[in-house]
Amino acid sequence: MNKELTSIDPYEYDESIRKNGFGIIAGIDEAGRGPVAGPVVAAAVILPCGVRIEGIRDSKKIPEKEREILFYEILLNALCIGIGIVDANVIDRINILRATRQAMYAALVDLTNNMSIRPDIILIDALTIPSMDVKQMSIIKGDAKSASIAAASIIAKVVRDGIMKSYHSIYPQYGFDKHKGYATKAHLDKINKYGPCPIHRKSFQKVMDLVLPLEQS
């Protein structure tokens, strides 16, 4: 199977995988590798063959309100969805790449626990998951090529955004409801002013650059 196979239509891309003998496809993607605060969230999604949800694409390219509408459309139409969440403390302990893979693994376990059938193949955006007994296919920019991965990216993004909005009620001074933990200038200014809170990733350089002067003062 050609890993570089591309298609204008992400549903046609997934159909091309099915034609290679993999009838049940699970798409996996994450949200939250780049931020300096909050968890990394992964989602695994199995879309039914023949069902199209208009507008599914890379979640980063979808306005927030449209993304939330698509989120509920996916919930209504997907055969099954799994979620995996790894918090900032674990990210600091094991690093973000391992934490992302752990979240993806947890999402797939959640998916298989929620359904009586297993996927024939998992399509993953740019990564592989070690120690999996299901065939995997790593696809560069998979959220722009595969409908299953794009659906997973939307689920992961909306779930993570919801978590960050909840954290805003606990730590309102940082503005998590706006930047969702990404290293915007406004966010970094708040860390510089208040210091990091428990959900900041202290192993990330942009946080460390602000933490070290505080510790040395």
Rank of each mutant, 00 (worst) to 15 (best):
M1A: 14
L5K: 11
S7I: 04
S7Q: 10
Y11W: 12
Y11C: 10
Y13K: 08
Y13R: 08
Y13A: 08
D14S: 04
D14N: 01
R18D: 07
K19I: 09
N20Y: 11
F22W: 09
G23H: 14
I24T: 14
I25Y: 09
I25F: 10
I25H: 06
I25T: 07
A26K: 10
A26T: 05
G27R: 06
D29S: 09
D29W: 13
D29Y: 12
E30I: 08
G32H: 09
R33D: 01
G34E: 02
G34C: 01
G34V: 04
A37N: 06
A37G: 11
A37F: 10
G38M: 01
G38F: 00
P39T: 07
V40M: 07
V40F: 05
A42N: 04
A42D: 02
A44D: 02
I46L: 01
P48F: 02
I53S: 02
G55Y: 08
G55D: 02
I56F: 05
R57C: 10
S59P: 07
K61I: 05
I62L: 00
P63Y: 05
E64A: 15
K65I: 15
E66I: 14
F71Y: 12
E73H: 13
L76C: 08
N77L: 10
C80K: 13
I83S: 04
V86M: 07
N89Q: 14
V90M: 12
V90W: 01
R93Q: 14
I94C: 03
R98Y: 10
R98E: 09
T100A: 02
T100P: 00
R101G: 00
M104H: 01
Y105W: 14
Y105V: 02
A107C: 06
A107S: 14
L108N: 05
V109E: 12
D110Q: 08
S116G: 09
S116N: 13
S116E: 13
I117M: 11
D120R: 11
I121R: 01
I121T: 03
I122T: 14
L123Y: 03
I124M: 04
I124H: 03
M132I: 15
V134P: 03
K135N: 07
M137H: 03
M137W: 05
M137R: 09
S138K: 09
S138W: 07
I139T: 06
K141L: 01
G142E: 02
S146P: 02
A147L: 10
S148L: 06
S148D: 03
S153L: 08
I154D: 00
I154L: 02
G162W: 10
I163V: 13
M164L: 08
K165W: 07
S166G: 12
Y167S: 04
H168M: 07
S169D: 11
Y171G: 02
Y171K: 10
Q173Y: 12
Q173H: 12
Y174F: 15
F176P: 06
G181W: 09
Y182F: 13
T184Q: 03
T184N: 02
K185M: 09
H187F: 12
L188I: 01
K190D: 06
K193E: 15
K193M: 15
Y194V: 08
Y194Q: 04
Y194E: 03
Y194A: 08
G195P: 05
C197Q: 00
H200C: 05
R201V: 05
V207T: 12
V207I: 15
M208A: 15
M208L: 15
L210T: 05
V211W: 05
L212C: 04
P213C: 06
L214G: 01
L214H: 12
L214E: 10
S217F: 14
